[in-house]
Design a protein around this nucleic acid. Structure first.
Lengths: 340, 340
DNA sequence: CTGTTAGCGCATTCAT
DNA sequence: ATGAATGCGCTAACAG
């Protein structure tokens, strides 16, 4: 079918070894004249080395396993959607391809295990990490190469890249304070969410720096849902009106949308003196009315760093820079309102 | 490193051929007793056949190439986001994995070509097709196995699955007519968009069936953008008020959002007597105010059909059912309004 | 029923 | 500088 190295050798009138040398730039082993002949023959027969054979020979696959998780109806994961694209792109730049696979949320290990045992991938990129992510635990134990987008158990030692939720929210609070807000609230994820807690940390740090007292009534937790945002607003509206928050940072854009929707329905001046800031920059955020201010994760840079790190890990090189924290960017649109 | 077939053979006290036979269920070639021994040995040494070696032997990869295209800032492609997940899942059910890759929009062929020549994939799934898609043209010429999500040049003969935009829009118009609308407008994509034109076909078919005259002023074309929706509304507002559309079907949700935004800013009673219906069901559509009525593509079923078809194509089986058209589902929410 | 062996396509060591 | 031969791990034809 497809021409192989023998065909080229025959066409060039040399041995297959010579062809291999030329193609792999082992310049010690051939003359300039031979090189020309070989290259010409390669061209003529239309030859490209077979990847599978190379893989078998070199005991690698140049494939990086990356798992999707399903986003249920009604949710979004704009971050992962972009992530996948940029990850593929960066991987290609490094000479890898992505092997995309799925796994059941309640039992991921067998899927990863099978891929390892079959030798289908050289490494994994883990995303959608949770606090004690079993996948990370497993891969550490197996000593199988991987890098993670997102942190997990802080006591585990593994390479990761993450968005600096703390500094992101810090910047958002700072911005709101600059606008004149003092009663700033935040909605986090459930208390066991490590990512959520990093973001909340930025909130309290920034309040502290601005010498604004931390009020527990202003900090609510909820699932990643529009409903969580609505519920929070309902809570806050129970407070005396001069104690109700004038600004809200939501752990994520979907929650922020819930906040905006409920607030507008209750007559709060969203985008004027009632400020809302989300996290992630969902694609439609800019078309909401008012358009959604948010913290955008540097997805492209994250992917770049991940692949860099992965190359180190796979080659067992120095694992310095094993942890990289990248700040998100505050995107100011209408929902964060005006100067008070 | 990882145990290979020799290790198992040694552990079981048999030859490697026997191990292979047992593992591949060539039951003519071993006794029940041997089978037990082998399986026990497999278990003991923790063996899984190496995929690369198998691939080399069988001249296949069990990998399906699937390319992402980048969605620019400010756009969405909720369909493809879901598509990728379900495609991976269906592929796995059929014993395949997805090789995800990217390609430059203006020059896709070399990327596909390289994958073929290197022997990295057994087949492709094409998505985001355009009218004269060069990728499809190329793959047909190469006689390389592929299936397409989406149609292309109608004269080309190739296997595809597509959403039936015609019947979808037909149903939407029918619904609007049932609500009492007579002045129904539609925004399509540029005139050379085959997908767009199928949807427009549903529009005119339904009008015809309802005996409503087709008015060219009611049919506008635009890019896939929020702005296109806004521009259309602006156009229609130039008409005498008793001739302005009372209902709009947008070629896609982003355009629908533009329609809603502009309409609301101009004081049109969106979600009441001014109806808007989109296409695709973007994840946030249900949280818009008013929530967006839309036509949801049956992505999971599409992926199922694609993989079924792909198995046929790869195995050169009968290529009946080479074309599958699946109707989208009308999701009625608030934006399509109330009975007039 | 079991074992020996060729060969998938390539990279590489060893002779020459 | 070039070629012959080996082996990566597996499957399957063939011999026994």
């Amino acid at each position: 079918m497809a021409p192989n190295i023998k065909d080229v050798a025959k066409a060039a009138g040399v041995s297959i070894a010579t062809v291999s040398y030329v193609l792999n730039n082992k310049s010690a082993f051939y003359s300039e004249k031979t090189r020309k002949q070989v290259l010409e023959a390669v061209e003529r027969v239309g030859y490209t080395p077979n990847v599978t054979a190379r893989n078998l020979k070199s005991s690698q696959t140049r494939l990086i396993g990356y798992a999707y998780h399903h986003v249920p109806q009604g949710q979004v994961n704009s971050v992962l959607d972009q992530f996948t694209y940029f990850l593929a792109q960066e991987a290609e730049l490094a000479g890898y391809h992505l092997l995309a696979f799925t796994y059941p949320l309640d039992n991921p290990i067998p899927v990863y295990d099978e891929l390892i045992r079959k030798g289908q991938v050289d490494a994994f990129v883990i995303a959608s990490t949770i606090t004690n992510d079993p996948r990370i635990h497993y891969l550490i134990n197996q000593e199988f190469p991987f890098v993670s987008f997102g942190r997990s158990n802080p006591e585990w030692d593994f390479p990761w890249v993450d968005t600096d939720g703390t500094s992101g929210v810090y910047a958002a609070v700072e911005y709101l304070v600059g606008l004149g807000h003092r009663r700033i609230a935040m909605i986090g994820w459930p208390e066991d969410s490590i990512t959520g807690n990093f973001r909340l940390q930025g909130y309290s740090d920034a309040l502290h720096a601005a010498k604004i007292p931390y009020r527990t009534e202003y900090v609510l937790h909820g699932e990643n849902s529009e409903q969580a945002g609505r519920a929070a607003v309902q809570q806050w509206l129970l407070l005396p009106s001069d104690e109700q928050p004038t600004a809200v940072i939501a752990i994520d854009d979907l929650v922020a949308i819930g906040v905006m929707n409920e607030a507008m329905e209750r007559g709060l001046p969203v985008g004027k003196t009632f400020a809302v800031i989300g996290f992630d920059d969902v694609p439609l955020g800019q078309y909401l009315r008012p358009s959604l201010s948010t913290l955008r994760q540097p997805i492209e840079e994250i992917c770049h760093q991940l692949i860099l790190m992965l190359e180190d890990v796979v080659n067992n090189r120095s694992l310095k820079a094993q942890r990289v924290l990248l700040p998100p960017k505050l995107i100011v649109r209408e929902s964060s309102g005006i100067r008070l």
